[in-house]
Amino acid sequence: MSPVLYYFLSFTGINILMCWSLYLPYRVGQLHYLTVACMLASAYFSGFAAREWSWPFALIVVVGILIGILICLIPSFAIGDAPCFTVVIIGLTIIFILKTAVENSPALGGTIGFFGIPQVNHLLPLTYLLVVYAGAVIYRIDHSRLGRAASVVFVDKNTAAALGIDVKRLGMFFQVAAGALAGLAGTLYAFLIGGLFPEFFNLGVIGTLMCMLFAGGHTTMWGVIVSVPILEGMQLLLPSAIASWRQVIYALTLIVIVLVLPGGLVTKRMLLRLKGKVSGGISKCNN
């Protein structure tokens, strides 16, 4: 497999997971950037455990997910139902603190980066198996009682509370689920890419993920499956002089999409039309 194709497939898989981990808390109206901190922590843990302690891959995946869960669980007691913007800033703050910690830890490679993570056989197909599995779980969540409750919370917290929905616990659930996804993405990232740089985990990566999520459509889980390969592929196909402006391209795309296509490429209404039936109260809540 050519390296370009390998990187394309790796980043597409990881970014779909990360976009889903942003999608889940956005179901209850929260932009949960803390997931990028989960990704950072579990990526560095995975790299370190594999290189220094020679842990088996399966164990590292499990612990990586647990780390993601833990990082989201502790703050969620405070911010499970916090205003969206407070959640944003708490996420950014924790990312920054973790990044500073990594940069000041020689054992983790400091600002230079962490290399030499051992390779795992058949990792790419395994990654996509895990992506499919994660997608199935998210689909189940979306179509469960929790998903319907989240749709109500997204529209109006007070209505949701009046209907007897525990807004805070629901928010906590989605935040923790997002943490698990991001933990998985972090572990896969470490093994697929083989090297880690603290500079990777900055506002830019959040902008990229937001662009993918909103371009694909934040009202369904399917949008990112369309938008991530397109946006990932775009930067590989563009000539390098233009590709170096990718941050600008992503930012402009995001602004234009939010202004012109408020629901993104794939909307709930579109899916319903595809199915050929208009069903139930959920769609009314979302559209």
Partner: peptide, 20 residues
């Protein structure tokens, strides 16, 4: 919240333009 998404993109844009 949507205004934040847009202004964050603007922030990225400004930063990237400055660094280029």
């Amino acid at each position: 919240n949507v205004s934040f998404v847009v202004s964050m993109s603007m922030a990225l844009l400004i930063t990237d333009v400055m660094s280029h």
